[in-house]
Design a binder for these strands. Structure first.
Lengths: 229, 229
DNA sequence: ATTTGAGATTGATGCAGCGCAAAGAAGATC
DNA sequence: GATCTTCTTTGCGCTGCATCAATCTCAAAT
């Protein structure tokens, strides 16, 4: 098992309130794993054998319906814990996690979670915060899908993407991992075609720059006003 | 402050793993409050001064958009913890909670949550489970709203309602609190009109019995097959 | 018993966005 | 550099559901 350096993990929200020694104790049980772009970290329905922290890269969580349609549940940003099925009492992963970029994750055996939490209860409270903000996000999405129409939903989704994973470039802010129109459709409950039309429109109006699996937002404020209808 | 009898709270998932003495210690800080039908327990955006456990009745959580549209986030069943803003790091309630029936809730000051969790870490892990299943529900809803059409979504919502709050009657299973077509519309992201048409159709086919703020499901299996498309 | 207001039904109309189709553009592979 | 694959664009017809509007019904209030 590869030893994991403390400096990689110090400062992550999950480990807030732990001393360096305690952190070392926790990291001793982990190992770092590299995932190539487009490789699957874990599959929906598989036994939840591990839980994870994303150190570098980006991971997409998706659910698939019985008739094969995919829905993007969320994107995991560096520093986040994910795959916590065990912590919430699920024996299996509820979604599929795919690296959308070359990524590095810390991996712990799920079986040690109860022991770890008993020893360091702050892990539970920190995870509670993470889960809480995910729940907020999910509810926000439900509200948006209930009340807004496609263009506003796509605008909101794009704004969220650049907030969580935006990289400054000369012309604006770019989503810093490869993302297709299909992905955005699966995030917003529309179709590839509708998203393509909407983004083309925005590009003509100079709000964004498009490209193959690339989006640069030039005018976040104008996008914001579109998002609000 | 009214003393709360241990027998009311023993056996609730939130308190799993606590001894009777520990439970008493926690209940000492709580008081029971009655809420009349249609009264508000807490309001979206208000300072999160308390957290709650529902002992009896039913509570609806809703969010309101800037333009005044309501969305039903979920219904709280007896035994559940709710209003846990503080535990997930929010200074304000993210939704409005309304008693849809005469209800009894236990109330704790939110300020004691950190101290309580420090003393009884199992509270955090139990809350983690609750939050996890809520997150699952919310994701399920996102998936349904992305991929299913109105009739399936209403069928799913109704099945969930009778599962979580169903009462056996001679002709089938009844949702055991008052629920309007408007409420169901707000749960499923459709309109009152669409829900009314759908339920009328089902009633003609003998799947359900309707009534003013009343729904009895006669044929859950047929509803299930509708839900699956 | 009457009133009143909230909830429910039902019809008519319009349109946002989906399904389908076909072609073009940009990387990936060899 | 040629081929292949994946992603994207764009046009068109169609339909599910929202929107608007009118009416009906029942339960609680007085």
């Amino acid at each position: 098992m590869a030893a994991v350096d403390r400096s990689l993990a110090a400062g992550l929200p999950l480990f807030a309130g732990l001393s360096p020694t305690e952190l070392d104790d926790i990291l001793r049980e982990a190992h770092a794993v590299h995932h190539a772009k487009n490789s699957v970290v874990f599959e929906e329905g598989a036994e939840a054998e591990s839980f994870f922290v994303l150190l570098h890269g980006h991971v997409r969580a998706t659910k698939t319906t019985s008739d094969g349609q995919q829905v993007v549940v969320r994107y995991v940003a560096p520093g986040e814990i994910f795959g916590v099925a065990m912590a919430i009492g699920l024996p299996r992963y509820p979604a599929t996690a795919t690296a959308v970029d070359d990524s590095v994750v810390l991996v712990w055996p799920a079986s040690i979670w109860p022991r770890l939490v008993e020893k360091y209860p702050v892990l539970a409270t920190n995870t509670l915060q993470t889960l809480g903000s995910r729940l907020q996000d999910s509810h926000t999405r439900v509200v948006e899908m209930s009340t807004e129409q496609a263009e506003s939903r796509v605008a909101h989704a794009l704004l969220r993407l650049i907030r969580q994973a935006g990289r400054k470039v000369e012309s604006g802010v770019e989503v810093d991992f490869p993302i297709s129109r299909q992905d955005i459709a699966e995030m917003t409950g529309t179709t590839l075609h509708t998203v393509s039309r909407i983004l083309s429109g925005w590009e003509q109006r100079g709000l964004i720059d498009g490209g193959r699996q690339r989006i640069v937002v030039r005018e976040p404020e104008k996008l914001q006003s579109l998002a609000e209808g």
